[in-house]
Design a protein around this nucleic acid. Sequence first.
DNA 1: CTAGCTGCAAAGTCTTTGCCAGGAA
DNA 2: TTCCTGGCAAAGACTTTGCAGCTAG
Lengths: 147, 147
Amino acid sequence: MATHEFVEMFRERCRERGLTFTHQRQVIYQAVMSAKDHPTPEAVYEKVRRRIPSISLGAVYKNINTFIVAGLLKEVSLHHGTLRVDANLGAHHHLVRNVCGSIVDLDEHDVEPARVRTKLPSGFRVERQNVEIVGICESCVRKQSSQ
Amino acid sequence: MATHEFVEMFRERCRERGLTFTHQRQVIYQAVMSAKDHPTPEAVYEKVRRRIPSISLGAVYKNINTFIVAGLLKEVSLHHGTLRVDANLGAHHHLVRNVCGSIVDLDEHDVEPARVRTKLPSGFRVERQNVEIVGICESCVRKQSSQ
DNA sequence: CTAGCTGCAAAGTCTTTGCCAGGAA
DNA sequence: TTCCTGGCAAAGACTTTGCAGCTAG
């Protein structure tokens, strides 16, 4: 995509969601979009700094959060804020409640594993797979609808 | 399991791994084992404090880390330390490299989703599923074997 | 007795917040 | 002009570290 096209597309997405278009936002968004991996805010900051040396890390955080709230970006992990400890050493999967944050186990035998139909990067050795079934529990549904 | 049995089992696990058995460790381990969800260090601390009021949060952190290194406990998320941003809004899955931490996308169509064969908690509404294929990449294998 | 652990407090990350000057609409 | 944003610095949350006294083996 040409730079001009990208800028216009971003301008349109900002308009749709009522966000002010700024140069900083455009560069931050492009930095995330062009990353193959899923960068940390620090990595985004380093990338943006090459084009806007005066950018602050705080602005990167603020805008990443703004974009997440606006639905322009997502977080990879639902529970990155704090360590979660697991005493279940066997293979198992997780049922994650995306509102209250509670995580409970699903036994390995209750989940038929996902199958990958594509070729993985050469030399990649699969050790295991984690499946997260993400949703909302009954009591959170009630709380939301009673608001 | 009776308390006495549990203590002996834990004492044995400590012996196997060369860890000193202490009352604090035993209570911390039991607090995690008995939790249905996957508690945060803070939650473990609160639980342990009911039995050992003098326990410090630092001791809880130190021991959780000791247990993880010893293989007695695991972390739920491989990337909880910092936010990871995802610009791919469509359904997709992740290939996670557990040594270097890099995360790349797997297209939704390249993964046949997992299927849950058990009954989920009543009223739980599934929104999506995340599949993480976890392993080690070629360059990390080389680095490890050259050490 | 010795090594290793505990509690305490200080320090270190990662992230958010408050403020004011400056830019977008 | 009016509102919102950006940069800066301080504060806040989560976690680790250093140390002196105490406990397990």
